[in-house]
Simulated assay, not measured.
Amino acid sequence: MNLIRKFAIGALAAISALPNIASASAAELNLLTWEGYAADGFVSKFEAASGCKVTASYVGSNDDFAAKLAAGGGVYDIITPSLDTVPMLHQAGFVDPIDTAKVDGYDGIYPEFSKSRAVVADGETWAVPLIWGSVSLIYRPDKLPSTPDSIGVLFDPANKGKISLWDDKSAIYWTARYLGYDNVFDLSDEQLEAVKAKLIEQKPLIRKYWASAGELTELMANEEVYVSNAWTGLSSKDVNALNKGFKVVEFTPKEKAEGWMDSMMIAKGSPNTECAYKFISFMQSAEGQCGIAGSTGYFPVNPKAVESCMNADMKKERQVNNVEFVKSLVMWEQPKRLDKYLEVWNAVKAAP
């Protein structure tokens, strides 16, 4: 029995041992989500229109969703994992299927996302696309002697102590691309060993693995870090808005940037499905799509919804109707051997 299957069974056992977990009232909605995904600017509009009170808890990594659901650390109605995590959550039994007939605006979502094999599986729809974007590299041009063009900047000894990296298994994807592997989601044992060795070799260069966009912003604002991977649009906007006397710049490495899409899933046995479907529908509206895009700097999944709330320049910046940009990215997928990837990443973090 592989590691992820063992984890799923253990997680479900943990949930079954918590009989009082579903205790919220029908007028509440509890989100387990990312920073910026429950900003008051648009959530308050939803609350006023729906009568549903929103409470949000936040994650720093996709690995947090299963762990928090298994631990029973609260009542969660909607979770918003990325594309490479959606399959594991439904396979583990953490979520209920989605009735798309209850989602207003569903037909306006890019079919490349709504019909993804990660979203639609086993004859059911398990998630509703919410927002998408890319992961690029961010750096201080005043601190680096030349303009970088490669992931290699994260492995350069000249930047020792000033490098950061997201604390997530996706560090494997970055390193695999840097080593020249194209099959980043289906690495062989030999390739995974090479990736692990490279990441362990890199560790003395790392100032800190960041857990959230806010933490990376602080690391850069406090001049502890000069270069890192980062959520495209969000981190540079937040750091530069602090007016610290320097600017950070994003770039797409020659090995390509990563692409992701976050979706809304309904937690298994949620007592608040009425509010959940209202929220999922709201997030496909102009207020929802432009609201979350505005709070994060990311890209809307529903081009029809933003027709009236984004001007031409904003649509261009946020890649509206630019499906070709999606094709230019290494879009996240659940690794074929997720258990092995988790083992490697945990071994890297445990290494001295």
Rank of each mutant, 00 (worst) to 15 (best):
224 E>N: 07
138 I>R: 07
223 E>D: 07
182 D>I: 12
127 A>Q: 15
169 K>R: 07
196 K>T: 04
128 V>S: 08
150 S>G: 08
233 G>P: 01
206 I>T: 01
200 I>F: 10
224 E>D: 02
211 A>C: 12
143 K>Y: 01
213 A>V: 07
218 E>S: 10
179 L>Q: 00
172 I>A: 09
214 G>C: 08
233 G>I: 15
193 E>H: 09
134 S>F: 07
130 L>N: 10
137 L>Q: 14
205 L>I: 03
169 K>S: 08
139 Y>H: 14
180 G>L: 09
223 E>N: 06
176 A>Q: 11
216 L>D: 15
152 G>P: 03
202 Q>V: 04
233 G>S: 09
224 E>M: 02
223 E>I: 03
137 L>M: 12
159 N>A: 08
188 S>Y: 01
235 S>F: 00
184 V>G: 01
202 Q>E: 11
235 S>C: 02
196 K>Q: 07
235 S>K: 10
171 A>Q: 15
166 W>L: 11
220 M>L: 06
212 S>F: 10
218 E>W: 00
173 Y>S: 15
199 L>R: 13
227 V>M: 05
209 Y>C: 09
123 G>E: 01
155 F>G: 03
189 D>Q: 02
221 A>P: 08
234 L>T: 12
179 L>C: 00
226 Y>C: 03
208 K>L: 12
234 L>R: 13
129 P>T: 13
121 A>D: 10
148 P>F: 05
126 W>N: 11
216 L>I: 13
125 T>F: 04
173 Y>E: 07
169 K>D: 02
208 K>F: 14
214 G>Q: 11
157 P>D: 09
172 I>K: 03
136 S>N: 12
235 S>W: 03
187 L>C: 01
212 S>L: 11
208 K>N: 11
179 L>K: 01
233 G>C: 11
168 D>K: 01
134 S>R: 13
157 P>T: 14
153 V>R: 03
222 N>K: 06
212 S>T: 09
166 W>S: 09
182 D>C: 01
152 G>K: 04
130 L>K: 10
164 S>G: 14
178 Y>P: 00
121 A>H: 04
220 M>S: 06
215 E>K: 09
205 L>R: 04
180 G>R: 05
232 T>K: 05
171 A>V: 15
169 K>V: 13
140 R>H: 03
170 S>C: 13
227 V>L: 06
186 D>W: 00
191 Q>S: 05
159 N>M: 03
198 K>C: 00
163 I>W: 06
133 G>S: 11
139 Y>W: 12
151 I>N: 10
232 T>V: 12
122 D>I: 04
164 S>P: 15
186 D>N: 15
138 I>C: 13
141 P>M: 08
200 I>M: 13
209 Y>R: 12
221 A>F: 10
218 E>Y: 00
210 W>E: 08
224 E>V: 03
181 Y>N: 15
122 D>Q: 08
230 A>L: 08
132 W>V: 05
217 T>S: 02
231 W>H: 02
168 D>E: 15
174 W>Y: 15
227 V>R: 03
128 V>D: 11
207 R>F: 14
231 W>C: 11
122 D>M: 06
153 V>Y: 03
207 R>Q: 12
181 Y>R: 06
127 A>K: 15
126 W>Q: 10
221 A>R: 13
193 E>V: 10
